[in-house]
């Protein structure tokens, strides 16, 4: 929701990523203090120096290109028009969502995706109107990164991709696979209109950026460290996406949270035996 998640990546993106990776400073040095080390490991960002450089580049590109374009889009296209654009793009993505629903064994969600695609492509005039949501078939997204997670693959270290933003090896691979499994992309490619793949990806990116104009400004203004905030939000959102919004237990806290500093299992923990999001993350990804 927050992060632009282009639906049509390709090998060029990967090449750019690798090019950046090779040219930039590499690994961070893990701290020696046990708590600091644990916090370092929780952040799951051994490539932080490189990631921060790419993040800076992305902020630059955002400030001078992506954000102004997104602002222009909001200024020029009325809300209803933007909604139709989003509906249309979501509908185009149906085959990829359906495939991932099936690959995750989510029969009911696959049925929802299929029914939505049928209704929205016909009654909804080629997907411009989301009639599915109105009849109890709300939109949900899926991607191959989530499918890999459901299959038990770990996320790997946090990665910031040039232009595309926060990711990790699992989600990067997922994005590429989604791009290749998209029948529209395949058809466009085979009929010599592959430029339309890029057009779609760019419009998708602009729309996603436009949806979070105020939010990102606000986060940047109020964060102690915008980079760390985005990293935290990306990872939390992915866990939520992978769980398909199924509830987690309790309030973050749990071990090490007691008033007097007593270890886990003491009354303070009993008061709130939280399942920490980090442990959720480990359960899901390891």
């Amino acid at each position: 929701m927050i992060f632009p998640r282009p639906s049509s990546p390709n090998l060029l993106h990967l090449a750019v990523v690798l090019g950046f990776a090779l040219a930039l400073p590499g690994c961070a040095t893990p701290p020696t203090d046990p708590d600091a080390l644990a916090a370092y490991e929780e952040a799951n960002d051994p490539l932080e120096p490189m990631n921060r450089e790419i993040f800076k580049f992305n902020q630059f590109a955002d400030k001078y290109l992506i954000k102004p374009v997104a602002q222009g889009y909001v200024a020029v296209v009325p809300a209803d028009g933007r909604k139709s654009v989003r509906n249309f793009l979501n509908n185009l993505r149906s085959p990829v969502i359906l495939a991932n629903d099936i690959l995750q064994g989510e029969v009911q969600r696959a049925g929802t995706t299929l029914a939505r695609a049928v209704f929205n492509s016909t009654v909804g005039i080629g997907g411009l109107f989301d009639v599915g949501s109105g009849i109890g078939l709300p939109f949900h997204d899926e991607d191959f990164g989530q499918t890999l997670a459901v299959w038990g693959l770990g996320e790997g270290p946090y990665l910031v991709l040039p232009v595309l933003g926060p990711s990790n090896p699992r989600d990067t691979v997922g994005m590429v696979v989604d791009g290749f499994m998209d029948p529209l992309n395949l058809w466009l490619d085979h009929t010599g209109r592959s430029y339309l793949i890029y057009v779609r990806a760019v419009i998708d990116g602009i729309d996603r950026r436009a949806q979070v104009l105020d939010v990102l400004d606000e986060l940047e203004r109020t964060s102690l460290d915008f980079y760390a905030t985005i990293r935290s939000l990306y990872r939390q959102r992915r866990i939520e996406d992978i769980r398909n919004g199924e509830p987690t237990e309790g309030v973050p806290g749990g071990s090490n949270m007691s008033e007097d500093g007593s270890p886990a299992g003491k009354p303070a923990q009993a008061e709130s035996p939280a399942l920490e999001s980090d442990s959720v993350s480990e359960n899901l990804t390891n």
Binding site: P31, A43, S232, Q236, R237
Partner: peptide
């Protein structure tokens, strides 16, 4: 909000700042 916890977000941010000042 959509799975993003206020506490987790602060905790991740604060841990990051503490790490930057060597614990």
């Amino acid at each position: 909000i959509e799975g993003v916890s206020m506490i987790t977000t602060y905790r991740d941010q604060f841990a990051n700042t503490i790490l930057q000042s060597n614990g």
